[in-house]
Each structure stands twice: as C-alpha cells, then as structure tokens.
Amino acid sequence: MKAAEAATGAALAELTLQISETLSRLRAAREVSVGCSPKERIWSCAKTTLYRYVPLTARRHRRPLLICFALVNRPYVLDLQPERSLVRRLLEAGLDVYLIDWGDPEDADRHTDLEDYIEQHLGGCVRMVRARSGGEPLNLLGVCQGGVLSLCYTALHADAVANLVTLTTPVDFHTPDNLLSKWVRAIDTDLIERCGNVPGEWLNGLFLSLMPLRLAQQKYVRLLTSRPDQRTVEDFVRMEKWIFDSPPQNAAALAQFVRWFYQENRLVHDNLSIGGRRVSLRAIRQPLLNLYALEDHIVPASASKALGEYIGSRDYSGCAVATGHIGMYVSRAAGAEVPGRIVSWLGERG
C-alpha cells in the first residue's frame, strides 16, 4: 500500500512539474505575432479592405485569385505563420493573391446587410481586382461563410468569375448532423436585428458549445501535460488568438444569414433572392472545386458536399480532406493537400 502511494505521489509531482513548465512557456508566448506575409492595401469600402499579397515568385497563373473569407472570423488564419499559411503556399505557386478583410463593424454598421456585402463590398473588390488585371474574369476562393457569399456573387455575376473554389462551405443547412443549424432554427431573427450587432464573443461561445469539453478543456489539458517546447506553445497560442479574435457581426447581415440559410435553407430550396435578383446555384456554370473537411463540427461534410447536387456547372470537383474545420486552414496534414489541390486544379483551367 505504501509503495502504491509513493508511486502515485511521484506521478502527481511529475504531472505538476510538467504543467508548471508549460504555464511558464505560455506566459512567454502571450505576445506571439499572427499573420506573416506582406500585403498592400488596394481598396476599401466602409469597414471592408481589399489587400494584395506581395508576390513571392514569378507569376505562373494568368488570372488573379481573390479570397473571400467568412464574416464571423478573421482571415489571417489563412496566413498564420510561414509554415502554416495557405496564402503563402499559393504565393509560392505563383498565384497573384488578393484577400478581403471585412474589418470591425461598429454600431453604425448595424444595417449593413447581405446585399451590401455581396454587391457593394465583395462586388467592389471583384471590380477592383479585375480592373487591375485587364478586366478579365478572376478566380474566386470562398472560405466557409465566405463561400456562401461567393456562390451568391457568382450566380449573380457569371461574367466576373472564371473559376470558383469553395472551402468548408455550407450549402445544405438542414443535414441531420448540423447541430448549429438545429439550435438556431427557432431563433427570432427580427429580435436579432432589433438588439443590434452581435459581439464576436457570443459567437465564440456558440461555437465552443458544440463540443464544450473537447474545445474548452481537453485541448488545454493535452497541451499542459505533453511537455511542449516553446515553439509548440507559440503555435498553440497563435491559434488560440485567432479562435478568440472574432469581430462583431452586423445585425442585419447576421439576421439574414440565419434566416435565409440556417432556417429556410434557401440555397437548396432554390428560392433565394439578393437585391431582388434570384440567386440559383443552377445558374453557376463555372468550373467549381469544392473542398470540405470530413471531421468538421461547424460545417459538416454533408452540408458542403451537397453542393454537387445543386450546382449548374458540368465541371464540378468535390474533394474531401481528412481533417476538421480549422484544420483545413492550419493543420500540417491539410497544409500540403489543400493548396496543392487548389493550385493544380486552377492550373488545369487557366
């Protein structure tokens, strides 16, 4: 009995020491930087800014690539650090990369709605990029919610987009495994509008609540007890910084997104209108590459791969990647596969 107690006591002391060391490293990593590739500001509209990344190599693709990220998170996750950067891999492949940053909406922006975002902000970015590249249609990469905006824009402006890539983009919001959709199905969207902009913290809380113990406890315990070196801790903190750095959401746009997509599933039911113009996935004839994550707890794979059933394009490629939602942007496994597929697919289509 005494030997067992001694062994347990020693194990506990070892565990305490591990945790103590990791906590010291975490303290040192607090000010870690995020976003690594140099970029220049090209244009802005209200809080939205269009950036162009400084090329890293000679251009090998004719058309520029415009990245349209989600409204609910910051786009720097695509360029977190040199070895975990989708943007950097695309630049290294000779693509001319532009990025839309939606910025920080203020209370005065509470009436900015999806039509504003799609026609004025995204549309303005598209027009600006095209103007800088001889007026040719561009390639568009929509990420998560930004993929939904990109689908809408492409359906409305067939002449502006040559090829469309969607990444972890929900299309069918009513698949059985979509927990987020189940929870917001009965939310009163009129009340959302009346209450004003929604703080990013609230959305963070919502996303964490999908798997609370895993996302708010287990990952920290794993880090604390794994004897991570300083670099591993910094990588972890970088990711955490992004996860909890969500911008507020404009009341009008969020209410419309919840109502039209999560509640009424309009993309699938083919009854969506933006600015009085019908938005139909059948109208999208452009080549389309749809990348989705098999272990995605925010946008289930079933919600993304449904796109293949509704798209009008005859050149559709669906591609499943064995990772989670955020893993699609930052995991080492997806780090090679995702940009590799995008580059080769675009390369084949010009």
Binding site: T22, L23, A29, R30, N204, Y220, L224, F244, D245
Partner: peptide, 18 residues
C-alpha cells in the same frame, strides 16, 4: 473562456483547465 477578456492571457485560462 480563454481569450475573451479585455486582454489575452492564455496562461490564466490554462491554469484554470489544469
């Protein structure tokens, strides 16, 4: 929840997890 305070202090949240 880590990172949701006015300043980002990861070690505090992790200490709580520990």
């Amino acid at each position: 929840t880590p990172g949701t305070g006015t300043s980002f202090k990861p070690e505090e949240a992790y200490a709580a997890a520990a």
